[in-house]
Amino acid sequence: MTEIHNKARIRWACRRGMLELDVLFMPFVDEAFDSLSVQQQAVLQRLLEADDPDLFAWFMGHQECKDPELKQMVQLILDRVRV
């Protein structure tokens, strides 16, 4: 799969059922996806496979993600949004 198709698929997966998640994921993918390493892109894809309630809890700080790679990606997205 080409990089463009992969980005399009990731972008589609960013469309969640919760507006709070959409406003985090969509700008991040639009602005930062191309600068991520292949490994980080794979972690982002894995993060997007998580359920919305878990994602919401992790991003809002209500719960800590147990997976260190996913936790790091959550923090990367949050740091990017705060800038």
Rank of each mutant, 00 (worst) to 15 (best):
L21D: 04
A50G: 00
M1L: 14
W58Y: 14
D22H: 11
R16V: 06
R80V: 02
E49T: 13
Q75S: 11
Q72H: 07
F33N: 00
V29Y: 01
R9L: 13
F33M: 03
I77K: 01
Q39R: 12
M26D: 11
D67R: 12
L21V: 08
D34H: 09
D79W: 00
P53Q: 11
R46F: 01
L24N: 06
L55V: 05
D30A: 14
A50Y: 06
D51N: 10
D67A: 11
D52E: 14
F56P: 00
A42V: 12
D54K: 13
K66T: 12
A42T: 15
C65T: 07
A13G: 02
I4H: 03
V43L: 07
M60Y: 06
D52R: 04
Q39C: 04
D52A: 15
Q39D: 14
E31R: 13
V43R: 06
P27D: 09
D67W: 09
L70W: 05
A57F: 05
C14G: 13
F59K: 06
G17N: 05
L36G: 04
I77N: 06
M73F: 02
M1N: 10
R16M: 07
F28W: 03
M18W: 02
W58K: 02
D22R: 06
E20S: 15
H62M: 11
A57L: 11
A8D: 06
F33Y: 15
F59H: 03
L19C: 03
A32G: 00
